[in-house]
């Protein structure tokens, strides 16, 4: 039975939730989630690229020749990444500086290329947009969740865009911030344990 547009959208939120269900695109997941804000920002940038590339690849799918399709996909994705880079430099410069090298690296994020190849090249425009948005929002939520856990345990508080914040150290005065979590080794271990929890719940 063919899936409806709504199903294509919602599968990205649990069934194929990146990066937990589809273990792809781990570099930004590990690299930028030192705070929740960075995680969400990276997620939104990736969602925009996914939406744009899925839309354009699907629109041009009858024109793109089979043999050079990967090269065409990469050019399309790189164009959208450049748009995001320029937009962020204009409107979100502090975040752009924090995410640094990971913004141009959205080009080589396996999730984006994977969706173009596995979905958008074979499906109608409306379905491809739903798929891109669903996977993108799932990715954003995962990055936000991982960022929140790491920031909360590592700094003792979570702050998003200056005003939304929660302070664990104030709520539990005996809590000592566990700075290991915001450093490199903590990223691997935290992601590994979250993957374990998702696997356990999924079964």
């Amino acid at each position: 039975m063919p899936k409806t547009i709504v199903q294509e959208f919602t599968k990205g939120l649990w069934e194929e939730l990146p990066p937990f269900r589809l273990v792809l695109g781990l570099c930004p997941v590990l690299g930028v989630t030192t705070t929740m804000e960075n995680g969400l920002g990276m997620g939104i940038a990736t969602t925009f690229v996914l939406f744009g590339s899925n839309f354009l690849v699907s629109l041009l799918r009858s024109i793109i020749p089979q043999k050079v399709r990967i090269a065409c996909f990469i050019i399309i994705i790189a164009s959208f990444v450049t748009i995001v880079e320029l937009l962020m430099q204009a409107y979100a410069y502090p975040l752009y500086l924090k995410l640094g090298v990971f913004i141009p690296l959205i080009v080589v994020n396996c999730i984006v290329l994977g969706r173009a190849e596995a979905f958008a090249y074979k499906n109608k425009v409306s379905y491809s947009i739903a798929d891109g948005l669903g996977i993108g929002i799932g990715f954003t939520l995962s990055l936000g969740a991982l960022g929140a856990v790491r920031e909360l345990l590592g700094n003792g508080s979570v702050t998003v865009w200056g005003d939304l914040s929660y302070n664990l150290s104030a709520a539990f005065p005996s809590y000592q911030p566990f700075s290991f979590m915001v450093q490199a080794p903590g990223a691997f271990i935290c992601l590994g344990l979250m993957l374990c929890i998702i696997n356990a719940v999924g079964d």
Binding site: F188, I189, G192, N199
Partner: peptide, 22 residues
């Protein structure tokens, strides 16, 4: 343990090496 198998345990192992490089 089953939920930790494959990628999950690999990530925790990578964390240990990362700790050594730290």
């Amino acid at each position: 343990p089953k939920p930790l198998q494959d990628t999950s345990i690999a990530l925790v192992t990578a964390g240990m090496i990362s700790l050594a490089f730290f």
